[in-house]
Amino acid sequence: MNGAYWRIPSLAAFLLLPLLAGRVRPNDYEASRRDSQTAIERRNRTAIAAILGGVRTSMADMMFVKTEVYMHNGVAYMPHLNMDALSQRGEVVADDHDGHDDHDEEAYDPEFPPTVIPTAGKDFRGIVGELERRVRPWDDPDRPHIHTSGIELLPWYRMMTISDPTNVRAYQIGAWWLKGPKPEEALGFLKEGIANNPRAFQLPYLAGQIAAKLAKGENGETDSARTAEAWEFFDAATALMMKERPEGYDRDHPENFPGWSEYKEEDARGAVRFAVYFERDHGSRDAAIEKAVRYSEFFGGDGVLDRLARRLENED
């Protein structure tokens, strides 16, 4: 092949490099597996996630499996816990069936998911299966699950965030477990998460709640520095959320908005409500009313904010 044929496009590409480089934004980089939480969880609900368990390539994915196993005292069930509820409210609840990859569709009950090691009736391996059920942590899936404390999971969340600092969910759930016994450490953990994920509004929202709690002293006194800190967190969360929330989000048709979820919507509304309450308690009534009205309009109407605005307007 004559060299001139490839030299011309190569030269053109070289000359175009400054133009292309101008469009590069290094801070916008997201690792290939850091897609939305919804996508991560859909991937993790597949049977292969349960089968591969701890040898998954991504430590972030391992967190999901570890959480399920630790919360059930070592028993490996098919992944079924609702990670949104865990990260948002610290609740250990079963998820619905959406996105599960099960063989036994009709028998699936989110409260009684199947175990990774099958029951004797469904296990073709005979004595091998029986021995595995005796040696490995196993429980009859028809019996109610016993959920243990999430404190034991904290080192795993710490390891997850070390290995993948963009794992917002790990910061959220870790801070949830931590804020009870160690609120200062939980706040520090969230600050690290905010520094690593400056666009995730959920982190300053949770940090604001913890800072607000810390601002109230044991004897009823208020820590003004903490109050200011909480205020900053709520303002930051609100501003970030307003940038991220898709315009015209329709709660009746969330499937039309793939980057957003009902849990994010609840977090978003929670963030602005906290901001308004905080303004009411530590700022001015008029500013609180103005914020309540403005945020309600942003959401296309919010019953809680509307009621709050009316109540504040009627106050003396």
């Binding site: 034991e152 710490r158 450490e185």
Partner: peptide
């Protein structure tokens, strides 16, 4: 050596 928030009850890890 990783700082696990100086918390008790994480011996399982």
């Amino acid at each position: 050596t990783v700082d696990f928030f100086d918390i008790e009850g994480i011996e399982k890890f």
